[in-house]
């Protein structure tokens, strides 16, 4: 399921020509399944992520919340979002582990103009290759989940890798290994979807959460990180999870620009599973205003909190 073969590249950002070695068909799609209803907000997964990725510790400040910081950061890929919620007059915590969703149709990858800066492996993991990143920040605006984050020092963009280095060696992601409650699961996408559905059914039938359900948004072809929510009809409650995530229209045809039409057609056959979701034909995109990095002070610079 999760070995080196699954790190076969399936899509490459802005790449002219075919994807090397592409096309072998097997059940290799992986997924992380997060049961939001049994997360206790202990943040062990946050620590594991920082440690596995060798990121520095940061100075944080008290902000009237249990949440470690307002959003994920270029060196903090994984953040539990804490929401105080009232349901039928009773209090409940909504605690959602926020990180890259590893979209089947990744807006970041579509938006990226640099050859090879973002790849999607056959197992579904979307990975940034910083050596090819030109720091333009298009991926940031292409992502419907506000995930990629800019490192102002190196001028590169970073995000959760779904621990592709671990998964490639047959290990589960670090956050999954650290979780003490077992609310995090990792396996093939189909297994995870089945597990999630069983749990959602249990919540509906036995725990009184009539709207419990699985979050695997089809508007972007599904994701390789799926949630079980107590109330799947209102994902926004969970720290702003979009119910209908969309890639900005300006990017939905972007990558066709770089590819000769013939190769595109060849790729189309091999990648039918992904491209059938793209409703547009091979016409040139008109990205209205691709946001240059320096024009994004709110989302990038202003969030720096680490020590200089």
């Amino acid at each position: 399921m999760s070995d080196e073969r699954t790190l076969q590249i399936q899509q490459i950002s802005a790449h002219p020509g075919t994807v090397p070695g592409q096309g072998a068909q097997r059940e290799v799609e992986v997924a992380k399944y997060i049961d939001v209803t049994t997360c206790i907000g202990c943040k062990a997964c946050e620590v594991a992520c920082v440690e596995w990725n060798d990121h520095p510790f940061r100075e944080t400040t008290f902000d009237n919340t249990y949440q470690t910081m307002p959003t994920t950061e270029w060196n903090y890929y994984n953040l539990i979002k804490f929401v105080e919620h009232e349901r039928d007059g009773n209090f409940m915590w909504l605690m959602r582990k926020d990180q890259c969703m590893h979209c089947a149709d990744p807006g970041c990858l579509r938006a990226c103009p640099a050859d090879g800066a973002i790849v999607q492996y056959e197992n579904g993991i979307v990975d940034f290759q910083q050596e090819n990143c030109i720091g333009c920040g298009y991926c940031i605006s292409g992502c419907p989940f506000d995930i990629p984050k800019f490192n102002p020092k190196t001028k590169k963009v970073f995000k959760c890798t779904l621990c592709s280095d671990r998964v490639g060696q047959g290990l589960e992601p670090a956050c999954i290994k650290a979780c003490p409650t077992g609310c995090l699961h990792f396996g093939t996408k189909s297994d995870m979807v089945a597990l999630a559905n069983t749990r959602a059914k249990q919540l509906r039938e036995q725990s009184g959460f009539q709207n419990a359900g699985v979050y695997d948004p089809q508007s972007i072809g599904g994701t390789h990180v799926i949630y079980v929510l107590h109330d799947a009809t209102q994902p926004e409650l969970y720290g702003g999870l979009p119910s209908n995530p969309q890639i900005p229209p300006s990017y939905t045809g972007w990558k066709w620009l770089a590819k000769p039409a013939g190769l595109v057609m060849a790729a189309l056959g091999l990648l039918a599973v992904f491209f059938h979701r793209v409703a547009v034909g091979p016409k040139l995109p008109q990205p209205e205003e691709p946001p240059p990095a320096e024009a994004q002070p709110d989302t990038i610079e202003a969030k720096r909190k680490e020590k200089p």
């Binding site: 206790i40 907000g41 202990c42 943040k43 946050e46 620590v47 920082v50 440690e51 510790f57 940061r58 100075e59 944080t60 400040t61 008290f62 249990y66 470690t68």
Partner: peptide, 23 residues
């Protein structure tokens, strides 16, 4: 708190990062 273990994790930058201050 789940983020701290009694009185010694406040000597560990990682835990301090998670909950930096008393409240």
């Amino acid at each position: 708190l789940t983020e701290h273990y009694h009185y010694w994790t406040k000597n560990n930058p990682m835990n301090v990062q998670l909950v930096p201050e008393p409240f």
